[in-house]
Nucleic acid binder design. Structure first.
Lengths: 164, 164, 164, 164
DNA sequence: GATGAATGAGCGTTCATTCAT
DNA sequence: CATGAATGAACGCTCATTCAT
């Protein structure tokens, strides 16, 4: 908190006028970033396209978004690997189903149209986003240099994992 | 550190006779767990088997190992999501190539035999282990209940992602 | 201060137009409450009554007032148990003699008419108000349930302490 | 806490090796002081003495103890005027009756032998200790100068308040 | 070699007060 | 006059590390 206040060029107390406490700050920043990300990824996307196209569109958009916004990616990753993120996922999976529907819709459609493997949603998510996040992380850390081609190949490989 | 010393039944200072500091302790514990894991996973494994069999063997063994040793899995995950883990991977990927060769060998063989996609090793790793880790995490957190069948299907889906 | 401004329905800064600072606000509120209390207690009181009657009147009135206005009592007690209250008493006892004369007059009359013990005023105050405040506090905290009879008995016991 | 550590000439953290937290420190210090006080006051005291003598002994001893140990008195007063003290009293009065029996015993004996007024214990306590504490406070703050004689007179006046 | 008391920078948070608008 | 955003010293507490014994 001290560091954030410092970088924001404000006093230590000022932060608490805008966020009730650290947890709230973290949660709100997460929500904001996720919204921004969802918006960016949803550009040029339509439910009317074939499943495969939708998957490739969403996958490449997301991967590119992460690569172009490494700081946001790092935040999102840290969030999901923290107790905050676990609670968040638990609410989302076990609680009333809302938010982030763009991805769920795609997978539900994919399964019901028998284009994707008939596996639980959670596993399909893992198959699609597991590699995607790993690859984004490795690029940002400098372990690979992703280019347009590599991005597409990677997402297509993810598609192979997910499709029938 | 105090808690570890306590559970070990030694004084707070004693720990520093065996580990220079917290970072070193973490790194050494990691190495030990990874060795144990590699050994477990390598049981019944042979380089002479066909690539696909080797992949399925290693994948299912690993996933089962994580499910049976959730504490170790949590440690390994936390480690890799921390600065320690990043440094570790950097050394491993960019530095002198050693350790954990069992996996690298498999992917190198897979690529050279043209059974796997011709992608950088790092991406193949992401394709294989990304979903695996995600699925292990979700199982341990209670978001899915993996059984024998689901485990095999998951690893086979990973194989689809990786194979030509 | 923020809470007070809030409940008053004004901005946080506005309070400082009416009170130089927190200390002044506390002191002024104290003065106001003491005035109100003195007025209430003085109802139906006359210096012409016999000392004992005056004492019992003032004592029971005061005790009843506290019981009926527990919030005010709590404020007054907190005030007197704080550095503010100590300073206030110091000024009152050692400094120029004013204020709250109704009580002093009674005790001075009591001593000079040889109805009360010939003790320093401060001690007579302690004998009279010490138990009264203690009993009011205990009632408000729920340690006793004072009724009309108990109140009178208590004040009469105080009188026993004070009288010759 | 910082101030205490400072005056003790130790680091900020050291204090927590001896007291779990601030509340515990406060409670333990209180217990220690009360024990010490009870011991001092009980010197030369016997349940076999007549009630009046017991009362005068305990009263004068206590008052003298406070005067000789002004710091302890201030601590005890602050404690009892704080939430800690209120909770403590609540436990003592409403909970299982233990501790500080020397005083309760005296009052119970006094009432049952019909030497003291037939009032609730809480009120008798107020009658006896209310003035005593007030007088001790005023002495310590320099509002009166108590001497041997004044002390005895004060306690005798308290006795008048309490006795039949 | 083992101990555990001591350390102190750092944590997240509060709140009386100021001052530009 | 009134506002409320901004302040920053202070709070109670933690914990990896040291060092005299």
């Amino acid at each position: 908190m001290a560091m954030i206040a410092d970088r924001a060029g404000v006093g230590a107390g000022t932060i608490y006028r805008y966020f009730e406490n650290k947890d709230v700050l973290i949660a709100e920043l997460h929500r904001e970033l996720e919204e921004k990300m969802t918006a960016a990824v949803g550009k040029g996307y339509s439910k009317e396209m074939p499943i495969r196209v939708r998957f490739l569109h969403l996958g490449t958009s997301l991967l590119k978004y992460f690569i172009e916004n490494p700081l946001e990616f790092r935040y999102l990753e840290q969030f999901h690997n923290s107790p905050y993120g676990v609670d968040y996922r638990r609410d989302k999976i076990l609680g009333k189903q809302e938010g982030c529907n763009i991805f769920r819709d795609l997978f539900e459609d994919g399964v019901s149209q028998q284009v994707m493997k008939d596996l639980p949603l959670v596993i399909l998510f893992a198959l699609a986003f597991g590699p995607l996040l790993a690859v984004a992380r490795d690029h940002i850390l400098g372990f690979i240099a992703l280019d347009e081609v590599l991005i597409v190949w990677t997402i297509e490989a993810c598609w192979d994992g997910v499709r029938r």
